[in-house]
Simulated assay, not measured.
Amino acid sequence: MNMKWVAVIFSLALCGCQPSSHIEPIPKNKPDSLSEGTLANEKLTSDTTAGLKNIVGESAITSQTKILKAVVQQPIGNPGVRVWREMWLINSQGTNAQFLITFRETGASGADFHIKRMNQRNPAPPANCPKTVGDYKVGKSTSQEIQNCLGSPYYENYNPDGRYVYLYKLDPAITRAFVFDASGKLINTRGYKQN
Rank of each mutant, 00 (worst) to 15 (best):
S46G: 04
P25V: 11
R104K: 15
P123R: 08
A70I: 04
S152R: 12
E24P: 07
W84V: 09
H114K: 14
G107H: 05
N91W: 04
K30R: 13
N91F: 04
I187A: 05
T132H: 06
I115D: 03
M1K: 09
N96Q: 05
L186E: 00
A177S: 14
R117N: 10
K116S: 12
S109V: 04
A182P: 08
K169W: 10
T106M: 10
P79K: 10
H22M: 14
S20K: 14
W88C: 00
V81N: 15
Q64R: 01
D135Y: 02
E36G: 09
T65L: 05
N148C: 02
G77R: 01
S11F: 15
E24A: 14
Y166C: 07
P123K: 06
S152W: 12
N122Y: 00
N159D: 08
N148V: 04
P19R: 10
L34D: 03
S46T: 08
H114D: 09
R85D: 11
A70Y: 09
R82K: 13
G94S: 01
A50S: 12
P19T: 12
L167P: 03
A111G: 00
T106N: 10
A7T: 12
E42V: 06
V133I: 13
S152D: 14
F180P: 03
T132S: 08
G162A: 05
S109K: 11
K66V: 11
S109Q: 07
N157V: 01
P19M: 08
L170E: 07
P160N: 15
D112G: 06
C129F: 02
S11V: 12
N195R: 03
L186S: 00
A70D: 08
K116C: 00
V72K: 10
V56I: 06
L170F: 07
W88A: 03
R121G: 12
K140W: 01
L52Q: 06
N29K: 15
N29E: 15
I9K: 13
D171M: 03
G184K: 00
G184V: 00
I26C: 09
E36P: 05
C15S: 11
K185W: 01
K43Y: 10
G80P: 00
D47N: 13
K66H: 06
K193L: 04
I174N: 10
V71E: 09
I187T: 13
K140P: 03
V72H: 08
R190Q: 13
R176E: 08
D47W: 07
A50P: 03
S21V: 14
N2L: 01
P79V: 11
G57F: 06
L12K: 15
K131N: 05
W84P: 14
K116L: 08
